[in-house]
């Protein structure tokens, strides 16, 4: 079972709405390599994982992915909640708005609804872990594509990188995170620059 902690894993505080950015970032919620898929991938695969330590790891990663779903939803929510109808049309969000208004609904940037077909759970540890590497690698790519503009996305890129490629030594994880955050990422996000 799970307990809910009433806080984000990492702060999300966006000042200006930006429909264009929301339209892209929503894919990290419901897209093929998004956080929802990631959480369900790990949490589905763990049942047939024959090694206790790896099953435990899949549980812990899957749980963290649920926190990432919440962060992405917070980003999209804050980017869209104060949009005017004109801004929604301008951003190309009218087809989304007509079905969901500014509610959060898991879909890809292209409008494809979230589907379990984007991940695998085969009951074979090597097959499943290989799929995890591929999926988290893609997530990393997508998230760092936006990392110049938003710190929460840097955090997510960092998490997925450390899961897939290089386990961060805990004693240095915090420092590395701080360093990553301080790497000259302009406080004016690209979202703010783009909004009028």
């Amino acid at each position: 079972m799970w307990n809910y902690e009433k806080r984000l894993q990492y702060p999300v505080r966006i000042k200006k709405p930006d429909g264009m950015a929301a339209k892209i970032i929503i894919t990290q919620f419901g897209g093929p390599d998004g956080e929802l898929a990631a959480s369900q991938r790990y949490l589905s695969q763990r049942y047939s994982m024959p090694y206790g330590d790896v099953a435990g790891l899949l549980t812990d990663i899957g749980t963290e992915e649920l926190a990432h779903v919440e962060m992405i939803c917070a980003i999209v929510r804050q980017l869209t909640k104060d949009l005017t109808i004109e801004q929604i049309e301008e951003a190309g969000l009218a087809p989304y708005f007509v079905d969901h208004t500014v509610g959060l609904w898991p879909q890809s940037a292209g409008g494809v609804p979230f589907s379990a077909t984007v991940f695998q759970s085969k009951g074979d540890p090597i097959t499943d872990l290989t799929e995890d590497l591929a999926a988290d690698g893609t997530t990393l790519y997508e998230q760092t594509a936006f990392s110049k503009c938003r710190k929460p996305l840097i955090l997510l890129g960092f998490c997925h990188f450390s899961r897939s490629y290089k386990p961060f030594h805990p004693a240095t994880a915090q420092e590395q995170l701080v360093t990553k955050n301080n790497q000259n990422h302009d406080r004016t996000s690209c979202f703010q620059e783009k909004s009028h």
Partner: peptide
């Protein structure tokens, strides 16, 4: 982070 590291 420490939890995930210790898992493996």
């Amino acid at each position: 982070e420490a939890t995930l590291f210790l898992d493996t």
